[in-house]
Write a protein that binds this DNA or RNA. Structure first.
Lengths: 357, 357
DNA sequence: TGTTAGCACTCTTATCCTTAAAGTGCTAAC
DNA sequence: GTTAGCACTTTAAGGATAAGAGTGCTAACA
């Protein structure tokens, strides 16, 4: 990203131009910029500069007499040099603080609240995804008898319990449950959830053979183990505010909006898009920088929320390239900080809290 | 609904007219109907009849030379006399059968599958809501110690367990948990979930006073009880295929679609709209018949899925008034029947299966 | 050398007008 | 009771014109 080619004046003009465009959604013109007295220059000089910026690829004209619009390169410059992080009224986010302090909430609920509030404050569709369930280590597996024909299966992980109720064909006594739990533990403890699922799926027969004695029972329990993890993975994605997309003039045409609205309904796709192992706390991926062609007119803002340095959740905000970067970056910074600060969850090391639903 | 005023010929013409309009989305004209040889009559006679039907309020003209469009009364007639229930290719729904037979699935997952499949087959947004959690009777409350500082709270109901993990401030021994469960049971068993929440919220201090010994512990546990039920109620609504709405020409204008798409995001509102105690298995509510003014151009189809005569879930399909009633009614009938037939869940009386998540 | 006023040029958008097409209602004949 | 025929209405589409917006370029200026 060598914006070195840009003189200070060009930088200032470009920054101002993009900012204006984001605000008004109408192409940048020399006249309008002079009128807002954003510069001491004349419109003619400005035109020269804008022309130069176009040559350099920061702006482009839709047609000869229609003003200019930022390119991805232009937005990229803007995002990288953004000054004013927080034009947003983040009051609404303050309420999240109290949610962090509640003891009866778990991570699944927390991500819902976070998604709702961020979407509300930023006015864009927001997705929150709990990350890395696959990578969680299995600490133990227990089966607890409940009532007749029912037992509860628990998978303990460093970040809380996964649970699922089992319906049994015949009643099982307490000792059998304890035994079954032991057998499963001896098989899977130490593996990650992902490894367990893999091994169940690939070495299915093999495992069943080893468990000979209880084979029919375990056939079903193994299936449950796989199902649990799928369910938790899917429940770990929450999206809110999809229709806010339609407020933006770029999506007045239904065809434009369709693809993205559809994406926002597909949790698996969202997860793939939002989750990653990036080091950055906050990053914007703009237009063609995105992996999916259908998103070439969008920007996705991502934030990685960490507790004790470990990625817990990813927050994604989806909007047009002309999204309000300043506001969004402010909101995301707030959330990231909040996660970092959270003492309550931070000493989760001791507590191994009920983080999952 | 006195359609007695209609001669047989008028009925036939009206039925045909509405069917055509549903299929083509373009106003009904005498010319087109003759051309499709849907009648042996001439276009002039047809015009007389259509005119009469308009006088009677079944059709209306948008403008003098623009053909006619059904009114709500017209659609109502059509729905009530619908002949051909199933023009849909319901093959896709057959897959649901196998889901019903799976033993590792619970109701929460089932409603997701149902919503997905119905939306897929009908091509309309579909909402499924698990009904009546509030009304479930509390059979017992148990607290099971898990690991240090963690316990599992279980509420047993006639339709499965509700569960929530508790994070405790200090470790609790097994006996205390059993005691706590007993105290809560003695207080709430026999009440419905709804009554319990009410009584916790209104008689909060009173209850705490009675539980004097463990007051601080129970303060938190009571809070959890309320939270659990809220969570289960919210998780009991699932909507799928919202964007399919945009396929319909009536929603090409984003403004038209906005309200409904927003509604489809709001689980509480959806629940209110879909849940009811209606006796009918399947019913259509058309346009102005709907309670919400914003929905005056929509129809909502509802189906009530029962197991052993008890309302288990409601399915709602939302679309324009010009929705494909025949296809939808076919799909909904299939699902209702499937629920009725399901032996596996039907003997839930014995099994008290893990129906909730 | 950088800046600016002025103007010609381009392209879009709005408006008006005209025309064609679609569909009805009515009338008169069958 | 049915139908052919025609006048009437209204929309939709196309074309021409005019207005407006914004640029690029040139020439003058500090």
């Amino acid at each position: 990203m060598s914006d070195i080619e840009l003189s200070d004046r060009k930088k200032q003009i470009l920054y101002q131009a993009v900012e204006d465009y984001i605000e008004n959604a109408s192409p940048i013109t020399s006249g309008a910029m002079v009128q807002k007295s954003e510069t001491a220059l004349s419109s003619a000089t400005l035109r020269n500069e804008l022309n130069a910026l176009e040559q350099m690829g920061y702006l482009k004209q839709l047609h000869t007499s229609g003003g200019r619009v930022p390119t991805t390169k232009g937005y990229r410059f803007f995002v990288n040099t953004i000054k004013d992080n927080c034009r947003a009224d983040l009051q609404g986010l303050m309420k999240i603080k109290s949610v962090f302090e509640q003891r009866t909430i778990n991570l699944s609920e927390l991500i819902k609240v976070v998604a709702e509030k961020i979407s509300e404050v930023t006015d864009y569709p927001t997705v929150v995804s709990l990350g890395g369930i696959d990578k969680l280590e299995i600490l133990s597996i227990k089966i607890i008898p409940l009532m007749t024909n029912q037992a509860l299966m628990l998978i303990q992980t460093p970040r809380g319990l996964l649970n699922n109720t089992l319906e049994l064909e015949q009643s099982v006594d307490e000792q059998s449950c304890i035994d079954a739990g032991r057998v499963l533990s001896s098989k899977f403890v130490g593996m990650s959830i992902g490894q367990m699922v893999d091994s169940i799926e690939t070495k299915h027969q093999e495992i069943l053979a080893e468990l000979n004695e209880y084979a029919s029972f375990f056939e079903y329990v193994l299936q449950s183990l796989v199902n649990i993890t799928k369910r938790y993975a899917q429940n770990g994605v929450y999206s809110k505010g999809a229709t806010k997309l339609l407020k933006n003039p770029e999506y007045q045409n239904v065809e434009q909006a369709k693809d993205i609205l559809k994406l926002l309904e597909d949790k698996d796709e969202l997860k793939a898009l939002i989750d990653d192992d990036s080091e950055d706390d906050i990053e914007f991926t703009i237009g063609e920088e995105l992996p999916d062609e259908r998103l070439s007119d969008c920007t996705i803002a991502k934030a990685h929320c960490k507790i004790n340095g470990e990625n817990i959740a990813s927050v994604g905000i989806i909007g047009p390239k002309r999204m309000d970067y300043a506001k969004i970056s402010g909101a995301l910074k707030f959330i990231v900080d909040e996660f970092n600060k959270t003492d309550l969850l931070a000493n989760a090391d001791d507590k191994k809290g009920d983080i999952y639903d």
